Simulated scan of single mutants.
Amino acid sequence: MPTLIAALSAERFDTYLNWTGGDQALAERLYTYNVQLSAALYGPLHMQEIALRNMADGALIKRYGPTWFDDPAVLTIPYQTGCIAKARQTLQQAGKAVTRSQIIAELNFGFWSSLFGRQAHHLWQTLRPIFQAKGVQRGTIAQELREARLLRNRVAHYEPIVALPLAQRYASITTLTGWLSPSAAAWIANYSTWPVLYPAVPILVPDPASGRLTVAPAVVPFLPN
């Protein structure tokens, strides 16, 4: 019978073996835990993206009209206009109606994050009011969204996340979502399984002798058997 290592590939599993000092059973538990944590982050990341999309869209409609995404004064960089063109193409190829609402739904997190980048600074005065927080800066929002997008991509591609500062990432997701919509943040608080799964301490810590990252002893009881 094929082993789990064979199913995952030795290269992928080696990452976990390195963190467990070659203990295969513990590595399998850590791998499973990584999958569980990734699943637990999906809902909060989803809610953050949906809230960002709809709040940003609403603000841009108010300032530039319902077809703001076709206004060259709004989208000024090739990546953004490329996203719009790709969304239209995807809808056409799928035989779907190329409507405003369908285009908005088709745009990815990278597009919405780009609206807060340095090259889109001209949009900040329009988008700043969607965040219900005092003194928030464009650069702060851009950085938070960049980190969320990187985490989302790792989750989507089944990559390890246990080495990341997950407590900080989760706090950032919930905080930013709360700035966008207290109701969306309340949904996360009510339905997220993250607080049950995560031990609130780093999962991997440096080994005192070698400096190599290894599973923290305090985390072991949280790993699935």
Rank of each mutant, 00 (worst) to 15 (best):
W179H: 11
S114D: 08
G211D: 07
F69I: 08
L107H: 05
L223H: 03
I203A: 06
Q137H: 12
S192A: 05
G82T: 05
L41T: 01
Q80C: 14
V98S: 05
V155Y: 06
R212H: 14
K134F: 11
P129D: 13
V205L: 05
Q119M: 10
H46N: 10
Q93Y: 08
L176H: 01
A185E: 11
I130A: 12
E106M: 14
S38I: 01
A148H: 04
A186Q: 14
A87T: 06
E11M: 06
G58R: 03
A209T: 14
R149F: 11
H157I: 12
E28K: 02
A40C: 04
E106D: 12
I84L: 11
L151Y: 10
A40V: 07
G22S: 13
Y79Q: 09
I104V: 15
I188E: 08
D71A: 00
E159K: 13
A85R: 13
S181R: 04
Y64W: 10
L166C: 12
G21W: 13
D14N: 14
I130P: 05
Q125R: 15
R138C: 05
I188N: 06
G65M: 02
N108A: 15
I203K: 04
A25I: 10
L37G: 01
L91G: 10
Y191H: 15
T20G: 07
A25G: 08
Q93D: 15
Q143G: 09
R118L: 11
N54A: 00
S114H: 12
A218F: 04
G117C: 09
A51H: 12
E11L: 06
R12M: 03
P202D: 02
M47P: 00
M55G: 03
